[in-house]
Amino acid sequence: MTDSTSIFPKKIVVLLVLLVTLILLLPAAGLTFGDPSTAVTDQYYIQNSQVATGANNVVSAIVFDFRGFDTLGEACVLFVAVLGVAMLFRRVRK
């Protein structure tokens, strides 16, 4: 499919996309992820999650214990998506 229906020529669209991407990447230059001196929450999780939850896998401990409510929300999102598909593809029995 060609883009003959767009009012902007192709070059301007590509330039706009690159510009927005650069603007959104600009903050990444000033961020430091994972620096232990500033990451208080992360250090708490690493130190205490094994004893507090009993799981060796810290990722599972965070996903299912510390933030288990968000996992329920994400499971609901999957349920909603499947219900939407089932509703769209339903066949009418007369």
Partner: peptide
């Protein structure tokens, strides 16, 4: 046999994802 409800929740999510993707 550790970690409390975490394996139970793992099973629940496993059953759910299996059912959901199979339906799709």
């Amino acid at each position: 046999f550790t970690a409390g409800i975490i394996p139970v929740l793992n099973f629940a999510i496993g059953i759910e994802v299996f059912g959901a993707l199979s339906v799709v």
